[in-house]
């Protein structure tokens, strides 16, 4: 199925999604990858506040190239998600509803997705130019010293993603492969 979903990105809106569905997201998405995740979780451990409202948020694992003058952002495809596995469950438990990245997740993340009714999306890895065209604005809101790894607030329009882990336990990486192999028999 194909869906168009606009913010707020609530669990209720994501509940209908199944692994393999394609979705065009419109609204605010926050960027964070390795270093930003590490810092955010450390801030929480020290009793601090996150740099954005985590409830109903979607976090995109990306470190874009620098934007050229006149462009909102540079190339902006997903980075590999497993490096965020150590941190993601904490954020999911606080109300993050969606993650955008690429590649397999740990059992702990899968359980956190299920427990919270969240969704894990994949964007097309290595298609950073294509993804950048769906970003209308980008603003660094935290950790500017991290450069490409800073937290950015993106405004995206019809941002194309595919559901990998749905809120009911579906997993496209195992189901898609199995379905294709079955079709050949």
């Amino acid at each position: 199925m194909e869906y168009r979903i606009s913010e707020p990105f609530t669990k209720e809106k994501f509940a209908q999604l199944k692994a393999g569905d394609t979705v065009l997201l419109t609204g605010t998405v926050y960027t964070a990858r390795d270093a930003a995740h590490k810092r955010m979780v450390e801030m929480l451990q020290e009793g601090g506040q996150l740099p954005f409202e985590i409830k109903n948020s979607v976090i995109y694992y990306v470190g874009p190239t620098p934007e050229k003058p006149g462009n909102p952002i540079g190339s902006a495809g997903p980075t590999t998600s497993y490096r965020m596995d150590a941190y993601a469950p904490v954020l999911l438990d606080l109300g993050e509803t969606g993650m955008i990245g690429k590649g397999q997740r740990s059992q702990t993340v899968k359980e956190a997705v299920l427990r919270n009714g969240a969704v894990y999306f994949a964007a097309i890895g290595g298609a950073g130019a294509l993804m950048a065209q769906r970003v209308e604005s980008a603003e660094v809101i935290a950790f500017e010293d991290l450069g490409a790894e800073a937290v950015r607030k993106l405004s995206v329009k019809d941002f194309p993603v595919t559901v990998i882990l749905d809120s009911k336990g579906g997993d496209l990486y195992s189901e898609g492969r199995a379905a294709y192999l079955e079709s050949r028999e």
Partner: peptide, 27 residues
């Protein structure tokens, strides 16, 4: 599904060839 992804990858190559956006953010 696979064909669709490969076509998106081709589209990405065409956009990058305009010289403004690199093929991938991991340069």
């Amino acid at each position: 599904v696979a064909k669709n992804v490969l076509e998106k990858i081709e589209e990405n190559i065409a956009i990058a060839e305009e010289g403004v956006l690199p093929l991938c953010q991991d340069t």
